[in-house]
């Protein structure tokens, strides 16, 4: 059985695809997610082998979702869309396949064959997800998208990951690892990322430690482990 996850914002569409997947007898459907955030949670929880992913979704579309998945958890991806505007693009993203809604069972069977081959060969999914530009943060029942260039720094604490910006701080479900894929955000400590553009001052302390003063006036620590990397990036 192939461990599958399904993401689509339309309830009827989810039901329809679930019915089709079940009919093949090849899939174990781990979860059916109505949006990208729930999909991220389910991916971390279930480690699916394949993702059936709708492209047109509120706030975070299918492509953007890919940019938010931890690379070691990255499943194979089959895009499911109503219209093939995205065909070329998804080909470039090196996704496994794409299906057009309404999905014909015969067409799905081909996808299954392809998928099985890949899984037997133990092929690692090779996606080149788009660069992470806006980070989804929960704010009440809405999703607030914070642009990476607006972030001052990121702090990971026991309560979760917080983005600090000039307009307040926001909670996100993305991991530091995913966030540090953005070329703007650089890790300077196990618990901190700093926006390269927002560094105001760096003080080097004894013993290989350091401290960064950001534009927003926050002081964040540099640990020994990340100091060298930081110096390299800044050309020091």
């Amino acid at each position: 059985m192939i461990r599958a996850l399904l993401v689509d914002d339309e309830r009827n569409a989810r039901e329809e695809l679930a019915t089709l997947l079940e009919a093949t007898g090849e899939f174990e459907l781990l979860a059916s997610c109505p949006n990208a955030l729930e999909a991220l949670r389910s991916i971390r929880k279930f480690h699916p082998q394949v993702l059936f992913l709708d492209i047109d979704m509120p706030v975070i579309d299918g492509f953007t979702l890919l940019s938010m998945i931890d690379s070691e958890l990255m499943p194979h991806v089959v895009f499911v869309t109503a219209h093939d505007d995205y065909a070329l693009q998804s080909f470039e993203e090196k996704t496994l396949d794409y299906l057009l809604k309404p999905v014909a069972p015969e067409r799905l069977a081909k996808t299954v064959t392809k998928l099985k081959e890949l899984l037997e060969k133990n092929t690692v999914p090779r996606h080149q997800p788009p660069e992470l530009q806006r980070i989804p943060c929960l704010k009440g029942h809405r999703i607030k998208l914070v642009a990476t260039e607006d972030i001052d720094h990121v702090h990971s604490s026991a309560s979760g990951i917080h983005l600090h910006t000039d307009n307040g701080s926001f909670f996100t479900e993305l991991t530091l690892k995913v966030l540090s894929r953005s070329p703007l955000l650089l890790q300077c400590h196990k618990q901190y990322l700093v926006n390269l553009e927002k560094i105001d001052e760096i003080s080097l302390l004894e013993g290989g430690f350091g401290e960064i003063l950001t534009r927003a006036g926050a002081r964040i620590p540099i640990s020994r482990r990340y100091l060298r990397q930081l110096k390299q990036v800044l050309g020091l």
Binding site: N12, A13, E16, A82, H83, L100, K101, P102, V103
Partner: peptide, 18 residues
């Protein structure tokens, strides 16, 4: 809008059994 049309057909396909 093709999105509208195909999504509509897909919706109806899902509903028809239920």
């Amino acid at each position: 809008n093709p999105h509208f049309l195909f999504n509509a057909l897909n919706t109806i396909r899902a509903i028809v059994t239920r």
